[in-house]
């Protein structure tokens, strides 16, 4: 696309080659067996994420994007291929990553504040009570849950629970974030605010991020690189660098013509996959 050259003259490679390879999936495939039938959820996926890169995976639901995150987190072993983190194979729960799953996994018997602060109760991240209180209060402020500190998860809306889960992950500032539809349950205005906050934090802390979403706009706004997945089995259909500047202003970016151009280009790839996945679901019924 010629008009993209207006943005940045050289084709950006997402990150400078000098950056260390943080996460890598090499020819990974995953098979699941349910009711005696084996099906392939992810097939021949190779992804390299350099340090400090923000990678977004988009695709229709059920295309194995979340499976990729589970493997990087060490919660699932690939059936074929290998997954490495910082050059070492991922074999157990990867404690270097913060993982926000699609389902908010707040502990239902703990209040919002106690959920958010739980990392500091663990031996490996121990903090004293005063420091913990202060950080928790900061985080609660950041995600806009002020006044709900003492509420239980069951007393919150879906969007509020998501924000609490986000705060719980961000509070100990893991070097890598795995985000699975983190903003799906939020209303539009709040989503924009949270996207901006997350960008700010990621840029400031130089975190590496893999974001899974089916919101293409979100992917283009936030990421350095977007990968489009095919639906069932999940393969990489195409990938594209997003050449916008850092730090990025997501609120302003969405109105720029270059943004629309990239969005449109990726959408033309993605819409076939959505159609295919709808068709597949209809046949399955």
């Amino acid at each position: 696309m010629s008009h993209l050259q207006l943005i940045r003259p050289e084709p950006a490679t997402g990150a400078t080659p000098a950056r260390r390879r943080k996460i890598s999936l090499d020819k990974v495939a995953v098979d699941f067996t349910t009711r005696g039938k084996t099906f392939r959820a992810v097939d021949d996926v190779t992804i390299e994420v350099p340090e400090m890169q923000f990678l977004a995976l988009v695709g229709p639901s059920g295309c194995g994007k979340s499976t990729v995150l589970n493997m990087v987190a060490g919660l699932l072993a690939p059936s074929e291929g290998s997954v490495t983190y910082d050059g070492a194979p991922v074999e157990a729960a990867n404690t270097r990553v913060g993982y926000m799953t699609q389902k908010d996994t707040l502990l239902p018997w703990r209040s919002v504040a106690d959920n958010i602060g739980i990392a500091f109760e663990l031996r490996c991240r121990k903090a004293n009570a005063a420091e913990r209180r202060e950080r928790v209060a900061e985080m609660i402020d950041l995600v806009g849950l002020k006044g709900f500190e003492r509420h239980f998860p069951a007393e919150l809306s879906g969007g509020m629970r998501k924000r609490a889960a986000l705060a719980r992950m961000l509070i100990y500032e893991p070097e890598t974030l795995l985000l699975d539809e983190p903003f799906a349950a939020l209303d539009a205005q709040l989503r924009i605010l949270m996207q901006q906050e997350l960008l700010r934090l990621v840029e400031r802390r130089q975190m590496t991020v893999i974001l899974v979403t089916h919101d293409l706009e979100e992917a283009v706004l936030m990421a350095d690189r977007v990968m489009v997945f095919t639906s069932g089995p999940g393969r990489i259909r195409t990938e594209r660098d997003i050449p916008f500047e850092r730090p990025r202003n997501a609120m302003e970016l969405r109105f720029r013509p270059e943004f629309s151009a990239i969005h449109e280009e990726l959408w033309s790839e993605l819409k076939d996959e959505f159609a295919a996945s709808v068709e597949r679901e209809r046949r399955a019924q």
Binding site: A93, G98, T105, L107, E121
Partner: peptide
Amino acid sequence: DEELMDTLALMGASAKERFVKV
């Protein structure tokens, strides 16, 4: 809920801590 166990494991909780907290 195994997902709660996984969540704590990723935070670096030991087996004992997961037992006590989850």
